[in-house]
Amino acid sequence: MADQLLEQVRDAVEGQIDFEGQRLAELLTTVLLGAAGIIAFLVGFMTQDIRLSLYVGLAGTALTFLVVVPPWPFYNKNPEGWLPPHNATSGFSIDVDGQKVG
């Protein structure tokens, strides 16, 4: 019971996502932070208020952290079909191009 609970906590902290999710996370980081920087400058320059620039930039950054860091479900939509675990005694064999490799 305790082990199960710990496992869940570890999964939540590690926040693993699948390969497609990683590609998406990378893209979102670049796009969101880049956009936040550009908008921050433009807004500040238009209103001639450098403080607004700072706040827009920091808000955009906070949003990016919120979107990218936690393992949201949409990062795990393409789970990899891993092979089942095996060992010598399990009697399970793997065929690669007609050769037994496991």
Partner: peptide, 25 residues
């Protein structure tokens, strides 16, 4: 980008780049 910690580091790393660029502009 596979785990939360790596994503945290990546986002922060790029944030410093963006902040420096905006400051330069």
């Amino acid at each position: 980008m596979h785990s939360a910690l790596v994503r945290l580091q990546n986002v922060f790393g790029f944030f410093t780049t963006v902040a420096f660029t905006v400051a330069t502009v």
